[in-house]
């Protein structure tokens, strides 16, 4: 991690195209991802404690939609919604998509993103802290989680998807997978 960090933004042309894309498939994928996370990472929910009942508005400011995350134990949900149609939420976390992926994948520190104003939080600060700490502790790799949703095809798809993700990461500068730590000799 070095000084003068720059966080890439999602390309404007891509965001413009996504503005006209239907959100139902994204919501469907989000629901599957949330359910899969619930099964594969039960400690995520135990660490959230009473905050698991809260609703989080995840707002990637460089995309034309937001996500409403309800990490309730047993029936977690994740829905994609048009900005402004999210309804009631307890806490809002906003920032470039790359900043959020970087936090999940252990590249960026949430407090540092807050200090630099790359990350905005509103609403229930306790809920935001609990979510940040619970996700950080789980060392989640969203690419691996996506592959796990393929069921019987998981083992066949794992390597090509990881290679593709690494390529996209190098090209875009976005942490699309979890960084593997260097283990000591």
């Amino acid at each position: 991690m070095s000084n003068e960090r720059t966080i890439p933004h999602f390309p404007r042309v891509g965001a413009l195209v996504l503005r006209f894309a239907p959100l139902a498939p994204l919501s469907l994928a989000g629901a599957s991802l949330a359910a899969s996370l619930g099964r594969r990472h039960p400690r995520l929910f135990s660490r959230l404690g009473e905050q698991a009942g809260k609703k989080f508005l995840i707002d990637p400011i460089d995309l034309p939609f937001v996500f409403l995350l309800a990490p309730r134990t047993g029936s977690p949900g994740l829905r994609a919604l048009r900005r402004g149609e999210a309804g009631v939420w307890d806490a809002r976390i906003a920032g470039p998509l790359a900043a959020m992926l970087g936090m999940v994948h252990g590249v960026f520190d949430g407090d540092a993103l807050f200090f630099s104003r790359d990350l905005i939080i509103e609403g229930d600060t306790g809920a935001v802290l609990a979510l940040r700490n619970a996700i950080d502790n789980e060392e989640i790799d969203l690419t691996r989680e996506a592959v796990a949703m393929l069921g019987p095809l998981e083992s066949m798809a794992a390597n090509p998807v990881r290679q593709l993700a690494a390529l996209v990461g190098r090209w875009s500068g976005v942490a699309v997978t979890r960084i593997e730590r260097e283990w000591p000799e």
């Binding site: 991690m1 936090m103 252990g106 590249v107 960026f108 520190d109 949430g110 407090d111 540092a112 940040r132 950080d136 502790n137 060392e139 730590r181």
Partner: peptide
């Protein structure tokens, strides 16, 4: 101690 694993590691 309130910081992320990214902070700790770096």
């Amino acid at each position: 101690r309130q910081r992320s694993r990214a902070y700790t590691e770096a």
